[in-house]
């Protein structure tokens, strides 16, 4: 009985092997030599392995670059919560941190204390640079078939500063739409500078606060140097989003943009006019106004 069973098993394995070969031949669409499908599988595996290796190398390089960047600043470290704020508290709060359709979150976050010039005084604030990612649903419809849903991963570069004052009314300054730029569908608050109005859409419930913030100097600065950037204020957080023009080539990946966006954030805070801070009852650099460090910064 035993040899019969063995022969049956052998025969079965031959049949299965033939079927697999036919299947692979059908996939490759070739009537070539029998080893060709295996070669294709092998090549596919090699490509996958190379891709995985490259990605792993890039991740390691980025991690090293982020560590090199934080080493340049005293008290900075890699963070899971930028400025001590969890991703769930950021999502949907700013236009730079949308919810998307599936996953969202913070990655490559670094942060720590930084000296900011507020109303002529030097104040230490918590600052963070990070990438906000979210996924957008995309459905491809074809005739006679059900739609195929895929998710696009989108990212936004963000620099965030925890201010020593609270803006009880949110202010948003975002790039104007193409139609708005030609003056066809301009929404939001219009200000004195036409160049500024063409570039930015300003929204804020407290119009007096918006006008106080956007004095002639800041309008000119934003129109000249922050054209495609977004600036948002909500409670004690100031968010600057969008890609800076400069890159630090000594760093790798997204970390290349961090020195420039941090510099842009510092310049922006310095350029905010003193009446804005006075309107928010900023009392100067007393120990009470220095924000505490993030509650649970988790080193990665």
């Amino acid at each position: 009985m035993a040899p019969e069973v063995s022969s049956t098993v052998d025969a079965g394995s031959v049949v299965l092997s033939d079927r697999a070969t036919h299947l692979l031949l059908a996939v490759t669409g070739s009537d070539g030599p029998s080893w060709l499908p295996w070669l294709m599988v092998g090549l596919f595996g090699v490509v996958m392995a190379i891709s995985w290796t490259i990605q792993r190398h890039q991740r390691r390089e980025l991690h090293e670059a982020l560590n090199r960047f934080v080493d340049r600043h005293d008290g900075w470290h890699l963070q899971a919560w930028p400025c001590g704020v969890h991703a769930d508290q950021l999502v949907g709060r700013f236009e730079a941190t949308p919810r998307g359709d599936r996953r969202y979150g913070v990655e490559s976050a670094v942060g720590g204390p930084a000296e900011m010039e507020i109303s002529g005084a030097t104040v230490q604030c918590q600052v963070a640079c990070f990438v906000w990612f979210h996924e957008r649903r995309r459905t491809q419809r074809s005739r006679g078939r059900r739609g195929r849903t895929t998710y696009d991963r989108r990212t936004e570069l963000v620099a965030m500063c925890q201010l020593p004052v609270h803006t009880h009314r949110a202010v948003s300054i975002r790039p104007e739409s193409p139609l708005g730029r030609v003056g066809l569908s301009r929404s939001g608050q219009q200000l004195e500078s036409e160049a500024f109005n063409r570039r930015f859409r300003v929204e804020g419930r407290d119009r007096a606060l918006v006008v106080t913030l956007l004095d002639a100097g800041l309008q000119e600065l934003l129109a000249a140097d922050y054209g495609e950037r977004g600036i948002e204020l909500s409670d004690d957080l100031l968010v600057l989003s969008g890609e800076p023009t400069h890159r630090d080539r000594s760093l790798a990946g997204i970390a290349q943009t961090y020195p420039a966006i941090l510099q842009d954030l510092t310049r922006l805070v310095r350029s905010i006019p003193p009446p804005f801070w006075r309107a928010l009852a900023f009392e100067g650099p007393t120990p009470d106004t220095a924000p505490p460090p993030p509650p649970s910064p988790q080193d990665r």
Partner: peptide
């Protein structure tokens, strides 16, 4: 400051 904002 408020006069300036209101004037603008």
């Amino acid at each position: 400051d408020r006069i300036a904002a209101a004037r603008r």
